[in-house]
């Protein structure tokens, strides 16, 4: 009975939408409601299955798609690494702080969510643009003489993604680090390990599960990110989330949009399965 609820959850929120999108990706565009051809048609009283591969084939006829996938993977990977480098010390510091201040520090991590995500990304436009806050300060101080092109660069996208997704890295890392047994480090010190060595040999391996969980929570949504690159990013190289949206709303080609979505999912299947295996192992270890 208890196992039925997660299964139902998966069925309703993942499998059914997936099947719908999967189905559309094998049809062709037509000008009607709905704007794609049916898969099953009746001919001489018998059902005929019509599968069209054209949407998938199309993804490889134009370099746009492959280059957008690769670019999205790169952006997501770099952003995840930056989140890890910034988030790990923060999570570590929170986990090591005294019990009374931890809730306050955690609260500060979550606090930005109280403001609309969209507004916070817009605020970065104000900071990064040519006559924005950062450039004005740099010019006032005489560090630069011409405004730096910060907006509509890869740099701006990294800032936007790292800024927005950092809490998703910190929280699972904190949850992991907080459970570490401090006496292990004392034992390491007693056995002659310097703090750095103790960290590398004791803390880091133990926190591996937290690192993987945090990285996946950042990486997976970052690959399909749409809002941040649209507002802050380059116009000559677009991420796959934007390609998908353009297919749907600009070209109004649902089959190609669906095929793009299915391929994103295929790219993410490997990290998602890793994540699930890790979770299962943790659950078993906890028993």
């Amino acid at each position: 009975m208890v196992a039925g609820i997660p299964t139902l959850w998966l069925l309703v929120l993942f499998l059914i939408p997936f099947i719908i999108v999967f189905r559309i990706s094998f049809s062709e565009v037509r000008l009607a409601i709905p704007p794609y051809t049916p898969l099953l048609s009746w001919r001489h009283g018998a059902p005929v299955l019509q599968l069209h591969w054209s949407a998938y084939r199309f993804l490889f006829t134009d370099t746009l798609y492959v280059s957008s996938y690769l670019y999205s993977l790169k952006v997501a990977a770099v952003s995840t690494l930056c989140c890890l480098l910034i988030g790990y010390p923060m999570a570590y510091a929170i986990a090591r702080s005294d019990a009374a201040s931890r809730p306050v520090l955690l609260m500060l991590i979550v606090l930005p969510f109280w403001t609309s995500f969209l507004l916070r990304v817009y605020a970065w436009i104000g900071l990064l643009k040519n006559n924005g806050v950062i450039n004005n300060v740099l010019m006032y101080l005489g560090i630069v003489h011409h405004p730096l092109a910060l907006l509509q660069t890869d740099f701006a996208v990294y800032i936007g993604i790292v800024y927005s997704y950092l809490p998703f890295m910190i929280l699972p890392l904190y949850a992991n680090l907080e459970k570490h047994d401090g006496t292990l480090l004392e034992a390491a010190a007693d056995l002659g390990a310097r703090p750095l060595r103790a960290f590398l040999r004791v803390t880091l391996p133990q926190s591996f599960a937290g690192i993987v969980a945090g990285s996946l929570l950042v990486f997976i949504p970052a690959v399909g990110e749409y809002v941040i690159p649209t507002l802050l990013g380059r116009t000559d190289q677009i991420m796959i989330g934007r390609v998908l949206s353009d297919e749907f709303f600009e070209n109004r080609d649902w089959p190609v949009a669906s095929a793009v979505a299915i391929v994103i999912l295929l790219l993410l299947v490997v990290p998602i399965m890793l994540f699930q295996r890790l979770e299962r192992r943790q659950l078993e270890a906890a028993k």
Binding site: D236, I238, E250, N251, R252, D253
Partner: peptide, 19 residues
């Protein structure tokens, strides 16, 4: 027509980016 629309969308992306 849809095929033209697609060419147009691509061309426009190039134009906007100045490439």
């Amino acid at each position: 027509p849809p095929e033209y629309q697609r060419l147009l969308t691509r061309m426009w992306t190039r134009f906007k980016s100045g490439k």
